[in-house]
Design a protein around this nucleic acid. Structure first.
Lengths: 223, 223
DNA sequence: CGAGGAGTTGAAGCAGGTCAAGCGCTGTGG
DNA sequence: CCACAGCGCTTGACCTGCTTCAACTCCTCG
């Protein structure tokens, strides 16, 4: 990267804002176009059905970008909510276009982010379509654990989970009750230990076998 | 678009190839990097679990691009198969990088494609996570029907479906048997008519209500 | 100390899976 | 030209994973 590029990249993050847990900072149908870089905290991206049920599509972790392609949508296709206190860089999406036009190396970085998001959303579809409930949980835990590892925010076998069980249910396409029972089963069989807002992955191999998780798919996206 | 851009765009499609129905032209784990522009025919993108079960992630229709971000993966994250006879333009993915560096207007077009793919994959996740079986079918039919309309390959209320019921099952995260029964139910309730490789959407409003489909989300991506 | 939110547990019902068999094409080879 | 094989579709019977409804506990916060 040239000095100019580094400057530009840092300039993007000048305008930061703090968002409290539980606040929706993007709302489906919104026509104000903003791109966010998640500096700190976790966010979730979701859509709502007409009867009020939710489907969480993905989680954004520190370093992730939200609304990279918002330039090409008249309005947001999803909502985004803060799972804990966030630090967000607020970016005018026109600067994303500017990157693509003026800074080829940064533009490659954005494409890399896009490829990563695609891989994650594809894995989410596999979870929802083809895994039974317990495997969905294990698969998601492993994904988040590996993603944290990639950004060096991991903590041994412990996995931070700043979310309610109902959020997990809405991510995995399950009912709250069944999600709760499956977590209990995983705990009873010794695969995980549960603590407040954290779980410990006691037996990675067993979780991988249970969920058909492929660590390689994410490993590609190490920095 | 400048003349140079139009020339470049046409040049991309110089090297075309025909693929027979049923042939996998991208295989998961493959490290040969190629980008394809689908000129004619339908393709599906899928992953395989270790026990052999499949999850189809999305369908590619004429005009769609496959492997737009393959530059950033060591190997393909999915397989792609021809559902009927395809005409494919074979593109060196380095030319995609070239577009991003030299042709800002074309690059915007690529981002637009990416935004569209994201929206479609997100809808797929909602189907899989939150819709019951019959609604999944209706929702997918409506998506394909609207996508065909956008590329002007639609034919009234008829929808071409060059796929087996087992492909639908693998798309919608259902068993073949249940897929079959649900199609029968939709037929019996008069919402669709079934013919060889085609169905007719008899009552669009009822299908939309049943599946919570939002036509607006795709309409944005009209050309 | 009471209210409300998150988690937990029980009981009952149903959507969807699995197993199994049969049907009706189409293509192929004797 | 017929026989048979194979594939895609259909149907029946049974089973189970998951949902729903409902109640209760525990914790936190006002």
């Amino acid at each position: 990267m040239s000095e100019e590029e580094i400057d530009f990249l840092e300039g993007l993050q000048n305008n930061t804002v703090e968002v409290q847990a539980g606040v929706d900072f993007v709302v489906e149908g919104d026509d104000r176009k903003t791109t966010f870089i998640l500096i700190d905290g976790w966010a979730s991206r979701y859509t709502t059905l007409s009867d009020g049920r939710r489907q969480i599509l993905s989680f954004a972790l520190p370093g992730d970008i939200l609304g990279l392609h918002i330039n090409f949508n008249a309005q947001a296709h999803y909502s985004a909510t803060a799972m804990n206190t966030l630090k967000l860089a607020v970016v005018d999406p026109r600067r994303i276009l500017e990157i693509n036009q003026k800074f080829p190396i940064l533009a490659s970085g954005l494409s890399w982010c896009t490829a990563r998001e695609f891989a994650i959303l594809g894995d989410q579809a596999v979870r929802l379509g083809r895994l039974p409930a317990k495997a969905r949980l294990a698969h998601l835990f492993l994904e988040l654990w590996h993603r944290l590892e990639l950004i060096r925010e991991n903590n041994g076998k412990w996995l931070a989970l700043p979310m309610k069980q109902s959020d997990l249910a809405d991510t995995l396409g399950l009912s709250l009750v069944h999600t709760n029972r499956c977590i209990g089963d995983l705990r009873k069989s010794g695969l995980i230990t549960v603590a407040k807002d954290h779980i410990k992955l006691e037996d990675l191999d067993a979780l991988i076998r249970l969920s058909d998780f492929d660590p390689e798919r994410l490993a590609e996206f190490s920095i």
